[in-house]
Amino acid sequence: MKNFSIVALLLSVIIWGCDKSASTTTAGGKQVAGRIVYVNTDTLLNQYDYYKDIVKSSENKRFRLETDIANKAKNFQNKVAFFQQKVQQGGMTQEQGQTAQAQLQQEEQSIMAYRDKAAQDLAKEDAKKTEDVLNNIQSFLKEFNAGDKYDMVIGYSKGGGVLFAKEDLDITKAVLEGLNKKYADDKKSGKIKADTTAAKK
């Protein structure tokens, strides 16, 4: 989803790195590069169940908002048409017309304010969910690397900064399985509740 494209962008750079130096010193004093592995961020986002659920939830809420605003706008247009018809038929005094027109203007402004606030609220919620996805991945990678097997985990995506990486450095499958298992466990325990109601179009 477009709103969450920033996630892929952020993950295409370094996902996670240890606080310690990315290199170690041997007894002979030589610097040896630390073990660096990578996660395919395109695959991760396409198959991470939590990410898929929050995208679906965001799409559903956006769809419901658009439907709600469209209904409000249609109702408002009907009121305007009725007002114009009464004016043309001479069905109201000048004072009544001015009052009705002022009420219509106020209602139009109210609809616009509602639309803008709802859009802002959705944007804030999307930003929070984006942060949650990144935090979940980084937190899991720290647990995943509890034994200090790796010094750095980087995000790899087609067209990103990493042009080549050996396949044996790819830990995407293991990370994805772990993330999805943790998400399933969290949902089962009630720690996470995702709105996955399908949008009706």
Score class of each variant (00 low, 15 high):
28 G>A: 08
156 Y>I: 06
69 I>C: 03
12 S>Q: 06
81 A>S: 10
38 Y>P: 00
5 S>D: 15
41 T>F: 01
174 A>D: 13
116 D>S: 13
61 K>L: 02
188 K>G: 12
199 A>Y: 13
20 K>E: 01
87 V>Y: 06
166 K>M: 07
85 Q>A: 13
55 V>L: 13
100 A>P: 05
98 Q>S: 06
3 N>A: 15
132 D>S: 07
85 Q>I: 03
138 Q>K: 10
19 D>N: 10
179 L>F: 02
106 Q>A: 12
199 A>R: 14
46 N>K: 05
34 G>I: 02
149 K>H: 13
167 E>W: 15
176 L>K: 01
142 K>P: 06
70 A>Q: 06
126 D>N: 14
74 K>V: 01
25 T>V: 05
107 E>T: 03
130 T>C: 14
120 Q>C: 02
72 K>A: 12
176 L>E: 02
67 T>C: 09
27 A>G: 07
68 D>Q: 05
191 K>P: 04
100 A>S: 12
31 Q>R: 09
64 R>A: 04
69 I>F: 08
141 L>S: 01
5 S>R: 11
20 K>F: 15
172 T>F: 13
196 T>Q: 13
4 F>Y: 11
50 Y>R: 07
185 D>S: 12
87 V>C: 07
173 K>N: 14
78 N>W: 03
196 T>P: 03
84 Q>H: 15
160 G>V: 01
16 W>R: 09
190 G>E: 08
113 A>R: 03
148 D>T: 12
163 L>P: 15
144 F>S: 00
31 Q>M: 08
147 G>D: 11
89 Q>S: 14
110 S>R: 10
125 E>C: 08
162 V>M: 15
46 N>D: 05
111 I>E: 01
157 S>D: 07
87 V>G: 01
